[in-house]
Structure formats: C-alpha cells, structure tokens
Nucleic acid binder design. Structure first.
Lengths: 340, 340
DNA sequence: TTGCGCATTGCACAGGTGTGCAAGGTGACA
DNA sequence: TGTCACCTTGCACACCTGTGCAATGCGCAA
C-alpha cells in the first residue's frame, strides 16, 4: 500500500474499473444502475473499507448530515430526553446530533439562529418548546431550506412539521380525577405567560372545573415559571389562603416539588392535608417523597417521531410518523381524598 | 447582484483586488501581511458580509470545527451540566457541539468511536466519566490526532488532557463531618465496581473512618450502580441491619434519594433517625425533602475548563486552565447528630 | 547600475464528492 | 440491416478554502 490515507471514491472507481459517477450512484442508491455493476462496486467498497467523506459530501451537496436541537427549554430532564430520543433514531445512520441552545430574550436570537443554520447547513432541526412556538423561527427554516419539526402542546396545523401532545385533555382528565376524589378547592400553579404549554394546561384545568360546575376564583391561580423556586413561591401564596386548597395542580413537576417543600415546612401531610399533582413525569416525580402523581408527557416518543420525520423517507418509502401523542395520568402517592 | 448565493472568498478577493491566498491570510490572522492590505480586505469582508464556508474549510483542513462530547454517563443532570459548560465556552466561536453517547458494554465500542472520530474529523472531544477512564480511548484519540480532555476523579497524570476533582478528600471531609456530629455507625452505598469515582469516594469514606479510629465492617457497605433503584435496594439492606446505621453516605445523590425513600417507607425521620449524605449536588439534592447535605461536584467548571483546554490557545496566547477542581461539602438538612 | 535580502503576494493545485449533459451500448421492430 | 428508443455509463466541472513554492516589489549597499 503506497497510500496510508483512507480510500476515496477515486480508489474505488479505479479498482472497480468504473467511473466516479457510477460509484456515487451505488452509494446514493440510484435506481438507474445495472445490478451487476452495483454488485461489483459494492464488493470493492467492502474490500477497501471505503466510507464516503462527510466533509466532501457536505461541500458538494451544500448540506450537512447534522441534525440540530434548537431550544431554550429550562428543564434539563426534558432537553436530555429529547436528545436521547433523537439519538436513538440517528444511531447507525450517518447523521450526528448538534446541540444549540438559544436565548429567547435576546433581540438577536433570530439572527443568531439564521447564521447558525446558514453556516452549518444543517440537514434539519428539532425545535423544542417554548421556542418552537415562535412562528418566525419556523418561517426562517422554511426560507433557508432547512427541514424542521416543532415539538409542542399545540394543535396540529401541519403534521409534517409538528409533533404535539394533548396536554389540555390530559390535564382535564387529571384534574377530574382530583374532583372525583372529592376535592372542590383546587389550586393551580400555572406556567409562564406566553407559553402555549402553560395556556393549554391551564385550559385543561378550567375545563375540568367547569365540567363539574366548580367555580374557580382568580385567587386560586398562582403564577410560576416552571422552576422549583417559582413553585415554592406559588406554594407559599396558595397555602396562605383561607380556606386552604385541599389540592394543587402544578403545570410541571419541578414546581410541584417546590409546592411540596412549602407543605413540608408547614408540617402539612401530603397527601393527607394536601394533594399535589404535577406534569411531565420527570425522574424527579418518582424520586421525591411521596412519589408524585403526575401527567406523563411522552417527550421521548415525540422526539423519536420528530427525528424520523426529519431523516425518514430517505430510503425511498416515506414512513408515516404519528404527530399526536397522548399524555397520560400516572397515579402515585401524592394524591388522596381530602380529609373530612 | 447577479448571484444570490452567499459571497465566497473569490468574491472578496476580486472586490479587494487581491488573491484568495491573501484573503485567507486575513481570515487566519497570518502575521506576514501588510497592515494596509489587511484593512482593505477586512473592509470588503465586512461590506459583503462574507463568512467562510465551514464545509469547505473542513474539507481543506481535514478537520471539522466541532467539539464532541463522548459519554456513557447515566446521569442526565451531569451530562447536561457538561454540555452547558462547554457551550458557554463555545458561544460566539465558530465551534459547534456534537453529542455522542456510547455503550461501554458493547464489544465494538472502541471501533464505533474510532469510526466516529475518523469520519467526522472532530476538532476535539471531551470524555465524561466513566468512559473517560478507558485508557484505550485516550490512546485512540492520540493516534487519530483528535484533541481530547478527560474528566474524572483521578489523579493528574497529564494536565493538558485531564480535568479532575478531589473526590477522595472531599468525601473524607464530609464523612468526618458526620463523625464529628457523633455518628459511629455509618453505612456506605458505593458506586459500581470498576468506576474510579466509586473507588475514590469509597477511599475517602475509609480515610475518614480510619483517621477517627472507627472500624468499618463489610456489612456496612452496600453495592449500588448510581441509580435511584440501586440506592433503594442498598437502603433496604442497610436499614435492615441491627444495630441500624445512624448515617449513610451515598456515592451519588440519586442513590441517596433511593435510601431516603426506604427511610420514608419505614417511617424513619430524616435526619432524626437517619442522616443521609449524598454526592454531586444535582438539582435533585435541593428539591427533595429534607434538602440533601451533599458534596458539590464542580462539573460545570470542569466542563468549561475542558472546553477551554480544547479550543483555547488558538488566538495566540495559550491560557493556562486549571486542571484540579475542589468538591466541597454543602450542608443542608439531611444530616444531624444521632439521637441519644 | 547591479545584486542581494527581505517583506509581501499570487498561482495552481489539493481536498473528496455530486451532477448536467452527452455518449455509449443493447435490443426490438420494420 | 437500419433506425429508434431506452438503459447505462463517463467526462469535466462545480462546491469553497488552504497552502507550497515561486514570483514580485522594494530598499539598500557595492
């Protein structure tokens, strides 16, 4: 062996006695190809251990074999579950995963993302909530020609570019469960304003109360921003109320943990004195005490589906990936009928 | 404008009336360059909004401007903290972050990583524990010519390629704290066999007991594998002992949460009946009740330093990044003197 | 004026793959 | 046998940047 470098498409072509173009067709599974030629070339490829150079492909195709995760999601668990879901799909393919956090507050956010997408020529991106709710971002992807899938709690305008979950219905079911247990005085710790997930979950909460004919005064609604600390603050406010709510629904698990801390500090028994209901089913939910009754947000499945929507259909047959995923109630120990 | 494409180095060269090479020198900050020419070229670059094409650069340089995270770490929190730390350093640079989980158990693991590194031609990788302890992996990076930094709890053989923390001393200090509070019957939930972090933490535990002249029978040591469930199992075993330990040190927070669950199920008061000490200081530690006394593993700082070791020193002056980081005891509410 | 050294610049090719278009080959049919 | 259509293949160039080495220009001394 004169050359210690990795074999190139030229080496394969020479060895196989065909042209580069033909080798290229073999690699890219062109149907316009004699079966015999294909077999011959494939044998040489296997013998030389040839692997196409991704950098050269990226240059020639003007497209990189990279999938991006663009997010501003504060929840570590969620972000990592999405990554894992995508990586599961990408494993064994030529795609790699690149992570790109953005700052929703920054005035240059859109320009930053544009620069990122244009420079890196990503094959596609998965947009996590809440940034996925930004329509300008989706339009940006469209205009650049970058495939994208938005994850969200929204309705399904465009199944090709969206995977969603039925948060509203799931929350309605969960809160109905509280009502059926006898709770009438139920607090809500809602997510930040402007987040669709927060709106959907609040709507589900209200749906349940309305269906049961239970009034829901403003005082029973506390603001949160999906963090533990904001949950703690909201818990302080709600548990100061007289009469005290007998149950609290929190729009995510971290805030539920915050409320639980307040209950502990006040010596309240959970679920005896207070039932707590969360949302997400992060590992935190199962690891705190008592184990948290929560709504499982099927984020891993959604991420897998998103990835398949991006890279699927490349081997010819376009697989129809589901776009709607069901959040389901997970019953643990943090909910019980109210005392008395 | 005839061409709607992005400007290339040729456009810049033509506009500026110089050759490609000269433009290239401006971009790559070559010192062999007339100051006047540099200014002229930079003006054209700014006017055209020229940005070098990363794909073409990757091909020509045979090196991609990507930093990889190679890991098999089961802890979501840890993985994400590392990512965040690295991304903090990479923000504003031309580098992107690509994530690559591996399967330590797989017989083809090393080959997989080799293929990944050779194909993608990463600029550098950060190796997370426990896979970072694999010497063959480090040698592989060396032989391929891929820069790397190992994160670990190990001693510092090679500061250029390693960032480490003083787990052993930190644990010794933490367990000494338990002893000073009056605990004499202290359990250990150790990490999985073959993990250096597990060894170091166990060694620190034993150091403290030996220094205080306290015997430590095998029965007080339970095996774990850094998961909540294994912590739970270990907790069951330790809390079945007679006499029951008055304190338990767990080699990470998740296992500590598992032990806490066992204590709750048995109606034990923490820290009244049982003190629990964790390691890592993940958010879980602060979010469970009672807040967990734990050792803060400075993983974010370590990750930042690792990233700087990889990409630093490119602008001329090589910055000396620290390689050793101090884990420190965080005192919360899960530790108290034993009763009686 | 010539020669020399130094600072600066440019040519031409490398890096590896994809593709438009034209050419080559083959079989069928009149 | 000639013609035509169709299937298969190959050439040459595009994609964009980096670099070895030669060339250019300039000042200065002999």
């Amino acid at each position: 062996m004169k050359k210690s470098r990795q074999p190139t498409i030229n080496d394969v072509a020479r060895e196989a006695g065909v042209s580069k173009k033909t080798v290229s067709r073999v690699i890219n599974r062109s149907p316009l190809l004699n079966e015999e030629t294909r077999a011959k070339v494939e044998a040489v490829i296997a013998r030389l251990g040839y692997v196409p150079n991704p950098q050269a492909r990226a240059l020639a195709l003007r497209r990189n074999f990279l999938i991006g995760v663009v997010h501003d999601n504060p929840n570590a668990q969620t972000v990592l579950r999405v990554q894992r879901g995508i990586l599961e799909v990408l494993r064994g393919t030529e795609f790699e995963l690149v992570v790109r956090p953005v700052d929703r507050g920054s005035p240059t956010m859109l320009e930053d993302v544009r620069a990122f997408l244009e420079r890196q020529r990503l094959f596609g991106v998965v947009l996590l909530p809440p940034i996925s709710e930004n329509d300008a971002l989706a339009e940006l992807c469209d205009s650049i020609g970058c495939r994208y899938v938005r994850m969200g709690s929204a309705q399904l305008d465009d199944p090709d570019h969206m995977v969603a979950s039925n948060d509203r219905e799931a929350v309605k079911e969960a809160v109905t469960y509280l009502i059926e247990m006898g709770h009438r005085h139920i607090g809500l710790v809602q997510g930040p304003h402007g987040f669709r997930s927060a709106m959907e979950r609040r709507a589900g909460f209200e749906d349940a109360l309305e269906a049961a004919g239970i009034p829901h005064p403003k005082s029973l609604v506390a603001d949160g921003n999906y963090t533990f600390d904001s949950g703690f603050q909201a818990g302080v406010r709600l548990l100061d109320l007289l009469p005290r709510p007998t149950a609290i629904f929190c729009s995510n698990d971290e805030m539920a943990a915050g409320v639980l801390h307040v209950a502990r500090q006040r010596g309240l028994d959970v679920p005896g004195d207070l039932s707590i209901l969360g949302f997400d089913d992060t590992t935190l939910a199962a690891h705190i005490w008592p184990p948290l009754t929560t709504v499982r947000w099927p984020v891993s499945s959604m991420a897998r589906s998103a990835a398949l929507k991006l890279v699927g259909g490349l081997d010819g047959d376009a697989v129809e990936e589901p776009s709607m995923f069901l959040s389901t109630l997970i019953r643990r120990a943090s909910v019980a009928p109210p005392r008395g």
